Amino acid sequence: MPRVQFYHNAENPLALACEFATRAFASGRKVALRVPDAASARQLDQMLWSFEQQAFVPHVMAGSPLAAETPVIIGRADAPADWPHAEILLNLADDIPAGFERFRMLIEIIGQSEAQKLPARARWKHYKQQDLPLQAFDAVRREAL
């Protein structure tokens, strides 16, 4: 059963995902990053290469032959992802990730627009109905809600 954390009000959800992935990798953890589409995946890929000057975050796209050996995987919600590991899933898409149950932790990153908040509320309700442990944080202030 995964722990579920919601980070609401993110100014830049992709930048927050880069920060979380960088910190997780630095502590030896493996991360799956789930984005809505191919454009978001390309943007996140580029951001990970340049997010921190002194940090290197090895990452590949889901389905890559190197995915099983790579600690950070980028997958798209519009294409089925076969995640090679199940430690942390960062979801930036508007739907409930298929197979989220097998991860130890699910982090939902929600932006500031109503278009992002409405589906996030539905996901919160879904996880709550599943009796999953939920926590909510303000992404800007970095404090629990």
Results as ranks from 00 to 15, higher is better:
40 S>Q: 15
40 S>Y: 10
41 A>D: 08
42 R>L: 13
44 L>E: 10
44 L>W: 12
46 Q>M: 13
46 Q>W: 11
48 L>V: 03
49 W>R: 02
50 S>Y: 06
50 S>V: 03
51 F>R: 07
51 F>N: 13
52 E>R: 13
55 A>M: 02
55 A>K: 04
55 A>Q: 04
56 F>V: 08
56 F>P: 04
57 V>N: 03
58 P>C: 08
58 P>Y: 01
58 P>Q: 09
58 P>L: 03
59 H>R: 09
59 H>K: 01
59 H>L: 08
60 V>C: 04
60 V>D: 00
60 V>M: 00
61 M>P: 00
62 A>K: 07
62 A>F: 02
63 G>K: 07
63 G>D: 12
64 S>D: 07
64 S>I: 05
65 P>T: 00
67 A>S: 14
68 A>Y: 05
69 E>I: 06
69 E>V: 05
70 T>V: 11
71 P>F: 01
71 P>I: 01
74 I>R: 08
74 I>W: 08
75 G>K: 07
75 G>F: 03
76 R>H: 12
76 R>W: 02
76 R>P: 13
76 R>S: 14
77 A>E: 14
77 A>M: 12
79 A>C: 13
79 A>M: 13
79 A>Y: 05
80 P>Q: 13
81 A>W: 00
81 A>P: 00
82 D>Q: 15
82 D>C: 02
83 W>G: 07
83 W>H: 13
83 W>L: 11
84 P>F: 01
85 H>R: 09
87 E>V: 06
87 E>P: 04
89 L>W: 04
89 L>P: 07
